[in-house]
Simulated scan of single mutants.
Amino acid sequence: MRLKSSTVVAIGLIGAVALFFIIGALFGAARPKEARAAAKSAPQATTVQAKLTPEVAHEYDVVLRGRTESARTVAVASETAGVVAATPAVEGAFVRKGATLCRLEVNARQATLDQAKADLRSRELTQQATVELAKKGYRSQTQVLQSQASLDSASAAVRQAEIALDQVNIRAPFDGVFTNRNVEVGSYLSPGQTCGTVIELDPILIVGDVPETEAGQFAVGAPAVATLVSGEKLSGKVRYAARDADAQTRTYHVEVIAQNPRLTARSGLSAEIRIRAGVGPAHLVPVSALVLDAAGRQGVRFVKADQTVGFAPVTVLEETPEGIWVRGLHGPTRVITVGQSYVGEGQRVRVAAAN
Rank of each mutant, 00 (worst) to 15 (best):
A108W: 12
F27V: 06
R350F: 00
L26D: 00
V238Y: 03
V210G: 02
T308D: 10
V309W: 07
V291K: 02
S235E: 14
D114E: 15
V338D: 06
G196M: 03
F27P: 00
C102N: 04
V343T: 05
A35N: 06
G98N: 10
L290C: 04
A29V: 03
A30V: 13
T100W: 01
Y342G: 00
V343K: 05
I163S: 01
I22Y: 14
F20R: 06
Q128Y: 03
A277N: 01
K4M: 02
V207D: 12
D293Y: 03
E91Q: 12
E200H: 01
L3I: 02
I23K: 11
V225H: 08
A289W: 09
F94K: 08
G216R: 13
Q193G: 06
A39M: 07
I273L: 13
V131I: 14
E55S: 09
P32Q: 01
T47D: 11
A215N: 13
Q347Y: 01
L104A: 14
D246E: 12
A10L: 12
N107P: 00
A50L: 13
R96K: 13
Q248A: 09
A271E: 11
E162H: 06
G231M: 10
R67D: 09
L26Q: 00
P203R: 11
S341N: 04
V279E: 02
G98E: 09
E318G: 04
V168W: 03
L120N: 10
L205S: 07
Y188Q: 13
G28Y: 06
L104M: 07
A247D: 11
K51S: 11
E105K: 15
P321F: 11
I275V: 14
G82D: 00
T227Y: 03
G278V: 09
T126C: 04
E232Q: 15
Q143L: 14
A77M: 07
E124W: 00
E184Y: 01
Y342N: 08
V74Q: 10
K237S: 15
E55I: 07
V48H: 03
L269I: 08
A295K: 04
A156Q: 05
L101R: 12
Q115R: 14
E69W: 07
N169L: 02
A129T: 15
G82L: 04
P332H: 12
Q44F: 01
T47W: 05
G15D: 03
A25Q: 08
S235R: 11
G310I: 09
R350G: 03
P88Q: 05
I14V: 13
A226D: 12
L133K: 13
P211G: 13
A353K: 05
D209C: 04
R266G: 13
P88H: 12
F27I: 08
Q307E: 06
G15L: 12
Q110A: 14
R276G: 02
D293G: 03
H283M: 05
E105L: 14
L145Q: 15
V256N: 02
R262V: 10
S5H: 01
A354H: 06
G236F: 12
V287S: 07
E200C: 06
E55D: 05
Q160S: 12
L101N: 00
V198F: 05
E34C: 02
G231L: 14
G186Q: 02
I14K: 00
A312H: 08
V158L: 01
A18S: 05
A277W: 04
V229I: 15
A108M: 14
P173V: 06
K304H: 10
L104T: 14
R301A: 00
L145E: 15
R96P: 01
A312R: 12
